[in-house]
Amino acid sequence: MVALGKSGKLHRRELVKAVLEDRGDMLVIAGLGAPAWDITAVGDRPENLPLWGGMGGAAMIGLGLALAQPSRKVLVITGDGEMLMGVGALATIAVQRPANLSILVQDNEHYGETGMQETATKHGVDLVAMAKGAGFARTLLVTRPEEVPGLRAAIHAGGGPLFALAKIDETSLPLVLPPREGAFLQARMREAVMGPAAHLA
């Protein structure tokens, strides 16, 4: 069972670890900041693309990848601040209906990298409702440990697009930094998807 943080909300890294368990060949995009540290803490690998910038772009990177590789599962893990910055992407993605794309927002209701200023979700903005309004047929709100296995199953099942949001503990955890050379990060994922021929494209 996924542990809780000090606030009584889900522990962000335990949550990511549970979601990524037995992930197979799933491709994972992580938004800049803590989500990138979280997927790296679970284990850095070529099928991970941790972002160092491009705030607001994580979900759309997921869309481009999902459209290019319709037979592979693609998961975007990002924060509430990052999702809010690119919230129009929910409309763009919902219209495209990529069955192999899932988005998981780790909502701690704060900008964790810049001094814990409050985000709009702290003040009632409901990203799940916005995803529903955009046209996501499948949405999940996760607040309790016993709901996490269902979240994992939904992400791994396909039949998306899926928009999920987990309310998480706001505590900043020790940094676990991924490689920050972007060309390397891109090339290793391309090779994981296409083999060595990726570098001759």
């Binding site: 491709l27 995009i29 693309l49 491009g54 607001g56 772009g57 994580a58 979900a59 759309m60 990177i61 997921g62 869309l63 481009g64 990848l65 999902a66 459209l67 290019a68 590789q69 592979r72 690119g86 129009g88 992407a89 763009t92 891109q186 994922m189 391309r190 998807v193 296409m194 990726a198 494209a201």
Partner: peptide, 13 residues
């Protein structure tokens, strides 16, 4: 969004 989307497209070939 398009800049991000094409980054994802290229990741997937």
């Amino acid at each position: 969004e398009g800049v991000a989307m094409l980054a994802g497209a290229w990741l997937g070939g």
